[in-house]
């Protein structure tokens, strides 16, 4: 039981982190940015390349991953999203293609086989009777630090408030002196950075493979929608629902059914209650 609670908290923190980056983008454009999965995957691979293949310090690997993620977000906004001028269908299609392109690049550079990331911090600790690797613990703690920092940034800084303003009403924000274009660009870059950071932890939790991005991207999109778009608290709650659901099924039933129930939950909620569990109806 303790094992489930501890593992559940750990996995949920990770999901919350991945979902946060997606939420930023989804709340400004309401578009399914499928290439968000590419940030996750590329983040994991860049970290692997720098810290494991080149033997650089882990912090350098992590910083590299985050920077590449931010750069990808920035470029995607500049080269794809902006020229398409808010055509949701076109953005969805082009981000899917981009995700596959990035997947192929990873196959090209690193090969098709899965890679195991060495633990970010080796060692095992016993928390409340449950065995927890330092690696997972560190990932979770880092996730929560990043989530808290993001929250403070969105609520407490000028740029953060401008991001919120743009997400609610782009034209209104423009009238009050905010440059929506610049804010959108910053948001895409931050989202890329968060995705890449999440990808490092996610890869160390599971493993690194060119197909690793599909499930996390569905999960993060679903967490954001089910949690109610733009609701940070809702996002955190749903991240925990899904995290605990997966951990409980692995521990109590059958590990191979882990993803099955997550997908069923997502499909069920989206079809029955498309405004999400904690969101208001949009009109």
């Amino acid at each position: 039981m303790m094992q489930i609670i501890v593992q559940g908290l750990l996995l949920s923190g990770l999901y919350a982190l991945i979902a946060m980056g997606f939420m930023l983008i989804f709340s400004i454009g309401r578009t399914l940015n499928l290439a968000y999965g590419a940030y996750i995957m590329v983040g994991g691979y860049i970290y692997f390349w720098l810290s494991q293949q080149l033997g650089m310090p882990k912090i350098v690997g992590f910083a590299g991953a985050v920077m590449v993620g931010a750069l990808m977000g920035f470029l995607k906004h500049r080269l794809i999203v902006k020229p398409l001028k808010g055509d949701a269908v076109a953005v969805e299609i082009s981000t899917l293609i981009l995700a596959i392109i990035m997947q192929s690049v990873m196959v090209l550079v690193f090969g098709d086989a899965s890679k195991i990331l060495l633990p970010i911090i080796p060692g095992v600790v016993t928390v409340a009777g449950a065995q927890v690797t330092f690696n997972i613990l560190a990932a979770t703690v880092m996730s929560w630090i990043i989530i808290a920092a993001l929250y403070a940034f969105v609520r407490g800084t000028h740029i953060g408030r401008a991001m919120q303003a743009v997400s609610m009403d782009e034209k209104g924000a423009a009238i009050s002196g905010v440059d929506p274009d610049k804010i959108n660009m910053i948001t895409w870059a931050i989202s890329g950075a968060l995705g890449a950071a999440g990808g490092v932890f996610f890869a160390s939790y599971t493993q690194l493979s060119p197909q690793m991005w599909v499930a996390p991207v569905i999960i993060s999109i679903a967490i954001v929608i089910v949690g109610g778009i733009g609701s940070i608290i809702g996002t955190l709650i749903v991240a925990h629902i899904i995290g605990f659901l997966e951990v409980s099924i692995v521990a109590l039933w059958a590990p191979e059914l882990r993803g099955v129930f997550t997908m069923l939950l997502i499909i069920g909620v989206l079809v029955m209650r498309p405004q999400g569990l904690f969101g208001r109806e949009e009109h």
């Binding site: 399914l32 949701a88 969805e92 569905i218 929608i225 882990r258 499909i267 989206l270 079809v271």
Partner: peptide, 17 residues
């Protein structure tokens, strides 16, 4: 529209698993 796309993607992933 966007939600439809997501549900269909989730169904495919569900079948894969």
């Amino acid at each position: 529209g966007s939600y439809f796309a997501l549900v269909t993607l989730a169904v495919m992933e569900l079948m894969l698993q």
